[in-house]
């Protein structure tokens, strides 16, 4: 379309630049602040120019909040959540889409409902289950007057950190969407070629789902990495601390010295991995977000 609209174009650029400054400004402040000395970071007016102190501030932050352990734990947690989600939801979506059984509707709705209620409103009893995995069974047996003595506590464990986060619907819908777009004949052709359902799943569906898995991986990694409330509740043992839990430990203490440069450097370390993932794999991230919604 040939169009000459200089005013509209100038206005469009103005909007895009303002948007850029508003959304990127905070990053720039953090970058600048994290690389300054304490007097510089507290100067009024604030200087947006980065200085050379970043490594020093970062190592101070690293030591202050024990970021090494937390980094490892965050990585493990994000990886487990991602892997669990990518694997389990593929299986569930397969069961929902490709089988002729009345149960598929039961499966679909029981998974769908979980979209409605986030962890925050059911956090106490979820915590109770994590503290004693057999509590539901015990309660049911207790109702019939029976008692069992087993107990399995998930607090302070990677299983406890990740399993409840895997129990949601996001990935299932992403796969379901994709499976629904595959022509019926694909499975029928495989069937004519002698392949059973399990073989079809591994030979056809999984290889065909590669791009969707990548999309799901990016969003689940960010989701897993950014978990805040759940680790805060689950973890009391410092060796299971995650990075998000270390945030508050980075703050300058109330009556102490305002070394915000160290705090900002620490925050930067904590923010960086998901930002890098989204920056590098942006196409997949966007695709994952858009296609996991209904």
């Amino acid at each position: 379309m040939i169009q000459r609209t200089p005013y509209a174009d100038a206005f469009t650029y103005a909007i895009m630049v303002i948007g850029f400054l508003l959304l990127l400004g905070p990053f720039l402040v953090v970058l600048a602040g994290a690389s300054q000395t304490m007097p510089q970071v507290n100067a009024v007016p604030f200087s947006f120019l980065p200085q050379g102190e970043f490594m020093k501030n970062a190592s101070a932050a690293w030591a202050r909040a024990d970021l090494g352990t937390a980094m490892t734990n965050s990585l493990i947690m994000a990886a487990l959540v991602t892997a669990g989600k990518v694997a389990l939801s593929a299986c569930t979506a397969f069961a929902i889409v490709f089988f002729r059984t009345p149960l598929k509707h039961v499966f679909f709705w029981s998974v769908f409902i979980t979209l409605m209620l986030p962890l925050e409103v059911r956090v106490v009893p979820t915590y109770a289950v994590a503290a004693d995995l057999f509590q539901p069974i015990k309660s049911i047996l207790g109702f019939f007057g029976l008692e069992i003595g087993i107990e399995w506590n998930l607090l302070n464990s990677y299983a406890g950190l990740t399993l409840p986060l895997i129990a949601t619907a996001t990935g299932t819908f992403l796969y379901r969407q994709f499976f629904m777009t595959l022509p019926d004949e694909l499975a029928e052709a495989a069937r004519m070629d002698g392949s059973g359902s399990v073989r079809f799943f591994f030979d056809m569906l999984l290889p065909l789902s590669r791009t969707n898995m990548l999309a799901l991986t990016t969003i689940m990694f960010v989701y897993g990495w950014n978990q805040y409330l759940w680790p805060l509740l689950m973890v009391t043992d410092p060796s299971y601390k995650t990075l998000m839990m270390s945030l508050l430990a980075l703050l300058p203490s109330d009556n102490g010295i305002p070394d915000w440069n160290v705090t900002l450097a620490g925050s930067l370390i904590i923010m960086a991995p998901p930002v890098i993932v989204v920056a590098v794999l942006q196409r997949w991230f966007v695709r994952g977000l858009v296609s996991s919604e209904k």
Partner: peptide, 22 residues
């Protein structure tokens, strides 16, 4: 979609891990 496979226990098996967690 024309659901293609007919087993009743396979879908249960496949959906079970996530259903148990949920």
């Amino acid at each position: 979609k024309r659901a293609v496979f007919k087993s009743w226990w396979l879908p249960v098996l496949f959906a079970l891990p996530q259903l148990v967690l949920i």
